[in-house]
Design a protein around this nucleic acid. Structure first.
Lengths: 129, 129
DNA sequence: TGCACTAGTTACGTCAACTGCACTAATGGA
DNA sequence: TCCATTAGTGCAGTTGACGTAACTAGTGCA
């Protein structure tokens, strides 16, 4: 696909997808919606995510003002990530996703799962908050 | 990440992401929300998508009951894709995305865009419907 | 002294997703 | 006769996202 012009899509949906692409991004927001969290807390909650990916996503979120990054000059270091108002505003979106997913017929997913090799495994909690 | 157990995540958000992963999936739904569409219509609307990818997404959607696929035995063939009730139910989700994106501060995206090389370019219409 | 801890960064390798091109069937039009 | 059309499929090639491992600083603890 690659951007073939504007780096900031006009379409809101596309913009959303640009910022929250990949399965991890949204899941990180989900975790953060339950309250501020430290780096390791997020990494533990998101079973399977690598520090690499987590750092990347968090940095992007920070760049776009979705989360704040607070460094406490302690030993050992402590970094707390917290949603900004903009990040908090994602709650209705995640809730809508959750609501929708609840209505999707389960089908015999065991047999018919041409799903991507990506996506969640841990799914700590329903985050229906 | 890869599934390390259940193919059907408990968390609704994860489930949503499983079905609508990648930037294209959601964009296809967006197109379909404006009404039924043929294969080529979708391909034209989604500038940059390959027939391959479009077919894959559409097949997955069909498998999970998000769209219906109607084949008209004409020459040349005509295939129409239409959202089911389940697919239609995604409208609030996309709307929430759109609403949220409208509130995101633009920042000087030109300089600070550590965004993925994926995502939209065409963005036919805001789909704010 | 040496290991553990946190919150990363960097290099490196892998693997899957995606793209492009070619090709199909059956028919209408030039 | 040849090309265009639709809705794909198959093959090959590329990209880039993601994971693993190693490494950092400064201090606490054994």
């Amino acid at each position: 696909m690659t951007f073939s012009g504007t780096p900031w899509p006009e379409c809101g949906i596309a913009r959303f997808l640009t910022l929250l692409d990949g399965p991890w991004a949204t899941l990180i927001i989900r975790e953060l919606l339950t309250g501020p969290a430290r780096f390791t807390e997020l990494r533990d909650a998101l079973t399977g995510i690598s520090a690499h990916t987590l750092t990347n996503r968090l940095r992007r979120f920070e760049t776009y003002g979705l989360v704040t990054r607070t460094v406490y000059a302690e030993i050992p270091p402590r970094v707390v990530y917290e949603l900004t108002a903009s990040g908090e505003a994602l709650r209705p979106v995640l809730e809508a996703m959750n609501t929708w997913a609840a209505t999707v017929p389960m089908i015999d997913a065991e047999s018919a799962v041409p799903l991507p090799a990506s996506c969640v495994t841990g799914a700590t909690e329903p985050a229906s908050a």
